[in-house]
């Protein structure tokens, strides 16, 4: 049984997606400009993991959308 998401949890999820997005871009910059094969191949694998994290976080929001109240609760 899933409970409604708290405002705090939503804040953490949103901040986390910003973090994951920034990591994707930083890793892409490393893949594009790097010269050490071990680092560039790791960075390109990491892009996939960060994309997966991002999607999981986005999924968590969509899962909780239905049961979220539309009026502030006290």
């Amino acid at each position: 049984m899933i409970q409604p998401m708290t405002a705090k949890e939503l804040e953490y999820i949103a901040d986390s997606m910003s973090n994951e997005d920034a990591q994707i871009k930083q890793c892409a910059a490393l893949v594009a400009t790097g010269t050490t094969p071990a680092l560039t191949s790791l960075a390109s694998q990491m892009i996939q993991t960060h994309q997966q994290h991002y999607d999981s976080l986005l999924h968590a929001i969509s899962h909780h959308q239905q049961m979220a109240p539309t009026q502030p609760q006290q």
């Binding site: 899933i2 953490y12 986390s16 990591q23 930083q26 790097g34 680092l39």
Partner: peptide, 25 residues
């Protein structure tokens, strides 16, 4: 670039751990 990614990863680990401890669901 690699150093920036590494230090951000360290920070993100801490943030995820904090988020886990403060989660209700």
């Amino acid at each position: 670039l690699a150093g920036g990614i590494l230090s951000d990863l360290k920070r993100i680990v801490r943030e995820y751990a904090t988020a886990a401890t403060e989660s209700t669901c």
